[in-house]
Each structure stands twice: as structure tokens, then as C-alpha cells.
């Protein structure tokens, strides 16, 4: 079976801005694939290229094996959930959801029946007569989802769909989206700047930086084996150590939870002596801010009985296997 999406050396430039700059990737059918990156990293432009809303400057887009780089959005078997939902305010919820069927000439009875089914699937049964303006943010989100799914696309694009929701609703929707994707078995491409969202939902994640893919991996590998300093810092938090400080060559990432904090100064390999700057008690965990030389390092440990005085001497220690060597320059 051919890949759902193939991007081949894809670029999209707006004047001097290289929004997408030579991206290669393959998305497998049925995959929950995330594009993660800070704003301006090219992830949304990349999604819009797949949807057909932007024209590539160079390179190719293949959807299910077919070349699609120049097809208009309405000729692609792809649907999108927009960041601002883009519901049609002059139509009620039922007509919004049935829109894709209406423009294809499906009869009224049939399209309303299927719209009602879709609304049930997103837990909005009975909301058909309302206007989008009468719904809450979370409900609008579900309408946008139902509208995009009614045509049973093989590929759904989601552009920061949960960005406008509050934290609790967001977490609920994450679980629902993932469950929906599993039950429908269709491919999701999900754009987000929230690394925890990307890690918890995705099968694979592409981390974008300055129009390029910095690393493409499963969430676990992305976190455990960040390839560059950018990925190490953007996905989770990381201490980046110069090798020279610990008697090694190159640069290394060290996750805060892999560091042990002990009172007093101790010598030895795989440890550094420093001064405790601050302690944040977070309940089950405690976060320590430590100055080592002119660097500030963070350590996170399960909370225990030990109480370390702020300003006092501490020693940070780690297993050699916790160090991840980073590529220094690309």
C-alpha cells in the first residue's frame, strides 16, 4: 500500500522567506502523525501545502501515490480542521456538517441523515438547528471535526485544533481525537506547537525548525534520543552540557530527571559540583535549579525527606548512559 503522504524535497517560499525549505517525509496510512515546532517553523505551511492552500515553490507532493502538488483543494481527497474552525456563520450546524455532501449534490434527506450520524459521533446529537455563534468553543471544535469527516476522507489535516480551548477541555479532546482516529482508521496529520500534546497522541512526530525537519521519530525516541540541541530543548526540557566541562568531546543533552542531587561537594566521574539556586516543590516531584560554573542546570527528582539549603553546595550526578551526544552543527 502506498504512503498516505509523500513530500519530496518540498519548498515554499514567500518572497525572501523560506517558510518550507526542502522537506522530505512519508506519512503511512492509518498513522497519527504530528508536525511539531515553534511558530514560524514551517509546520503550518507544510500542512497547507498538503491541503492545497499554498503552492509549492519546488518539490513534489504525493497523496496515496498520486502526484497532487498542483491540484486545487477541492480536487484532493483530504479534509482539514482549521485552527479558527472556519464554520459558516450563516448556516446552522446541520448544514455546516452536511456542506461537503450538499456541494456534491447529495439529496437533502440523505445528507441530513448522515450529518445527524456525524453529529452523534462527535457527541453533538440534537445540536443541528443551532447556529455556530450559539456554541461554545469546544462544541464548535466538534462541529468542525464532524464537517471535515463527513465525506470519509482517507486523510485528515488538523491545524492546531485545540489551540483555542482551555487546558481541561484540551486534555479531554486529545483523548477523544486519538480514540476517533483509532476507530476510523484514517490518517491524521496534526500540527501543534505543544510538545506534550504531540508526544501523547502521535505515532510519529516531525520536529520543524526554520522550514526544515530537525528530527522525525517516534515520541519515545524523540525524547530519549534527541539528535540536536534544538530538539532536546524543544521536546521536553534538557540540560545541554559542553563536553569540555565533563572531560568529553562534543555536546551532550541530559534530561533533568536523570540527574541526582546530593548535598555537599563530592569528586568523581559523571558528576559536577555546584551551588543550589532554587528549589521548586511540585508535590510528587521537586525541581532543583543549580549553578555549575557559569551554567544553570535543572534537576528533577521524586520528592523525598531530604531538604537542601538554598545557596548551599550540592553535587549533581548521573549515569554515563543518560548522556546523549548531540550533533554539533548541521
Amino acid at each position: 500500500m502506498s504512503n498516505a503522504v509523500e513530500l519530496i524535497n518540498l519548498s515554499c517560499h514567500f518572497g525572501p522567506v523560506r517558510a518550507v525549505d526542502g522537506v522530505d517525509l512519508e506519512v503511512r496510512p492509518g498513522e497519527f502523525f504530528s508536525m511539531l515546532g515553534p511558530s514560524g517553523s514551517g509546520k503550518t505551511t507544510c500542512l497547507r501545502l498538503i491541503g492545497g492552500f499554498e503552492q509549492p515553490s519546488a518539490g513534489a507532493i504525493r497523496l496515496f501515490g498520486q502526484d497532487a502538488g498542483r491540484l486545487p483543494p477541492y480536487a484532493r481527497d483530504v479534509n482539514t480542521v482549521f485552527q479558527d474552525y472556519a464554520l459558516f456563520p450563516h448556516m446552522n450546524v446541520r448544514d455546516n456538517v452536511a456542506y461537503a455532501l450538499m456541494v456534491r449534490g447529495v439529496g437533502r434527506a440523505e445528507r441530513y441523515r448522515r450529518a445527524e450520524e456525524m453529529l452523534e459521533q462527535v457527541k453533538l446529537a440534537g445540536f443541528g438547528d443551532r447556529r455556530p455563534g450559539q456554541l461554545s468553543g469546544g462544541q464548535r471544535q466538534r462541529v468542525a471535526l464532524a464537517r471535515a469527516l463527513i465525506n470519509q476522507p482517507k486523510l485528515l489535516l488538523l491545524d492546531e485544533p485545540l489551540g483555542a480551548l482551555d487546558l481541561k477541555l484540551r486534555e479531554e479532546m486529545q483523548i477523544e481525537l486519538k480514540a476517533l482516529q483509532r476507530s476510523l482508521g484514517i490518517t491524521f496529520i496534526y500540527v501543534t506547537h505543544d510538545q506534550s500534546e504531540a508526544l501523547s497522541m502521535s505515532d510519529r512526530v516531525a520536529v520543524f525548525n526554520q522550514g526544515r525537519i530537525e528530527q522525525l521519530d517516534t515520541p519515545k525516541r524523540l525524547y530519549e534520543y534527541p539528535r540536536t540541541e534544538f530538539v532536546a530543548r524543544f521536546v521536553g526540557s534538557a540540560n545541554v552540557l559542553e563536553g569540555s566541562a565533563i572531560g568529553l568531546e562534543g555536546k551532550y543533552a541530559l534530561r533533568p530527571e536523570r540527574i541526582r542531587v546530593q548535598a555537599g561537594h563530592h569528586g568523581g566521574p559523571n558528576c559536577l559540583a555546584g551551588e543550589l539556586l532554587d528549589v521548586h516543590y511540585l508535590g510528587s516531584q521537586t525541581r532543583y535549579e543549580v549553578r555549575v560554573g557559569n551554567q544553570r542546570l535543572t534537576a528533577i527528582a521524586s520528592s523525598d525527606e531530604q531538604e537542601l539549603p538554598i545557596g548551599g553546595p550540592v553535587t549533581l550526578g548521573w549515569e554515563p548512559s543518560a548522556l546523549r551526544e548531540l550533533e554539533v552543527a548541521r
Binding site: T80, L87, R147
Partner: peptide
């Protein structure tokens, strides 16, 4: 805003529709 136009085309409507 323009996203409604994009949404419409995304859902299969050509320029005229």
C-alpha cells in the same frame, strides 16, 4: 476572514460554488 473560503474549497466546492 479567508478561512471560510478555504474551508469551502477543502470540502469539495469549486470557486463558483
Amino acid at each position: 476572514g479567508y478561512s471560510q473560503v478555504e474551508a469551502s474549497m477543502d470540502l469539495g466546492a469549486d470557486w463558483f460554488r
